[in-house]
Design a binder for these strands. Structure first.
Lengths: 116, 116
DNA sequence: ATGACGCTTTCCTATATGGGCATATGATAG
DNA sequence: CTATCATATGCCCATATAGGAAAGCGTCAT
């Protein structure tokens, strides 16, 4: 079984680099689809598909403007990810320390009794 | 072409719910592989595969302890994700406001001229 | 050495996915 | 109504999964 459906999971939606690029680009303001494609050097159909996924998970909203379809960032969905990773924040500094003390322990141990 | 290799991209690694569960579990302390499987109700080989992915992207570290292999969280890799999503933080509240004013506009418009 | 335990790897399969291309849909202009 | 521009879809392919089952190590006890 492959990964869970991209279209229903924000984590999955941003697992694709190009989609992250699109979101980053849209931070500078809303844009018509073709603009997005051009700005990022992507094909038009490809961009459209990525935008569709982003739309389905709610990370962008779209609006009609004549022939164009304007896409706008709706970053609220990223919050859950920010918070989930935030739950690990205290381990970022800690793990360095722990690793070092672990290495120290190993040194001592092997100095005391030199069995590997 | 499918998504970029899971094993090289942290975004991809945490796109899989079970792997997120594993990471969350490991926040409570290191555990032997079987323990992880049991605690989460996963199959043992499946767990092993997920742990391998997490190991390859550096989110966990492993250590031998007799017959067992102890897995430990190394959350440093999550930092980049936290920071990336953090770049969108200011849009979280903003988008609500914008959405509301947009809804207001719509109301006014359709009140003025009742065409849908 | 033998066996049991803990875990990893290998096969195999079903299914998403992303990319390219052609085509369809939608809206506006003439 | 037709041509045209802006996007979206459909189709086909190659590839990466995740899952299940079975077999392959490495380690420890006897």
């Amino acid at each position: 079984m492959p990964r869970a459906a991209t279209a229903s999971d924000v984590f999955n939606a941003i697992a694709e680099p190009q989609r992250r690029d699109i979101l980053t680009l849209l931070r500078t303001g809303e844009r018509p689809a073709t603009d997005v494609a051009r700005a990022l050097g992507l094909t038009q159909p490809g961009t459209s598909k990525h935008l569709r996924v982003l739309r389905e998970v709610g990370l962008v909203q779209d609006r009609r403007a004549g022939k164009q379809r304007i896409y706008r960032l709706d970053a609220r969905g990223l919050r859950v990810i920010h918070e989930w990773t935030g739950g690990f924040e205290r381990f970022w500094s800690e793990s360095f320390d722990r690793l070092e003390s672990y290495v120290q322990d190993m040194k001592h141990t092997s100095e005391g009794a030199s069995h590997e």
